[in-house]
């Protein structure tokens, strides 16, 4: 059986791992490579590295860091943040990333999805969506959640897949940092409507939250940062817990 994926996310700023609470107030949680290696040993299925300051500060993700990560870990990893062009994507993939994730740049230039997919294949293109529930609708936000786009999340997900996105990383801004569980409704809506894998993100606080998202939606992966960074949830215990609930998981 194809397994559900547990995906720790490392938010990176200035080469260090950080985690925002609702995208603000930042605490330092360590060296990204050390943390990545720990996650691999613990059984993480994939890793995501997001340069969270890249969009706001127009700073490029450091390809040197990607090279160092690629030399140290032997599971797939995605790099995002500040990838605004095909050239940026090439730099990151050539440095050893398996996939790149794009967010604001794809909203501003949807053709970028197609260009990267054409060059490296759809499986290399992860479309990250930051969504917030506003006036009874799940809407897309860009630039680290600062700017409303007026686009509906389901519409954008469908459009991005038709343009070549191979995977969707869906973050609920309402849930992110709250530890109150994943946004099951929008995760289910999007995973029902697209033919590519969806990774749910934002809100993980307990092991049951992971079970809920795998049982109540078609998401094939669940991403979390702080619960893993601060060892509130250990990956081996989480995977054992999910296995006991008859969820297909790699032990």
């Amino acid at each position: 059986m194809l397994k559900k994926r547990i995906v720790p996310c490392l938010d990176i700023k200035d080469g260090r791992t950080v985690k925002g609470i609702n995208f603000e107030s930042i605490r330092d949680a360590g060296d990204p490579i050390e943390l990545a290696q720990r996650y691999v040993l613990e059984g993480a299925d994939e890793l995501v590295f997001l340069d969270i300051s890249a969009t706001l500060e127009k700073r490029k993700t450091l390809s040197e860091l990607v090279t160092r990560i690629a030399a140290q870990i032997n599971i797939p990893f995605t790099v995002g943040g500040g990838i605004n062009s095909l050239e940026d994507a090439k730099t990151i993939i050539n440095a050893g990333a398996d996939k790149i994730s794009i967010n604001s740049s794809a909203i501003l230039d949807p053709e970028l999805i197609t260009k990267i997919a054409h060059e490296f294949g759809n499986q290399c293109v992860v479309l990250a969506i930051d969504t917030k529930f506003v006036n009874d609708q799940w809407m897309v936000f860009r630039s680290g959640g600062k700017i409303a786009t007026g686009i509906g999340a389901v519409d954008w997900a469908k459009k991005s897949v038709s343009l070549g996105a191979g995977e969707i990383l869906l973050t609920s801004m309402n849930n992110d940092g709250t530890k109150s569980g994943f946004a099951l409704d929008i995760t289910q809506q999007i995973s029902e409507h697209v033919s590519v894998p969806v990774i749910a993100s934002g809100g993980a606080g307990t092991m049951q939250h992971f079970a809920d998202v795998f049982k109540q939606t078609k998401a094939t992966g669940a991403l979390a940062a702080s619960v893993f960074h601060y060892e509130q949830i250990s990956i081996p215990s989480l995977k054992q817990f999910l296995k006991e609930q008859n969820i297909d998981i790699r032990l």
Binding site: M1, L2, K3, R5, D45, G166, P197, T220
Partner: peptide, 12 residues
Amino acid sequence: PKNLIPHMGWNN
């Protein structure tokens, strides 16, 4: 196309 494509992830 009877399931998600590509077949992506960990399988035994």
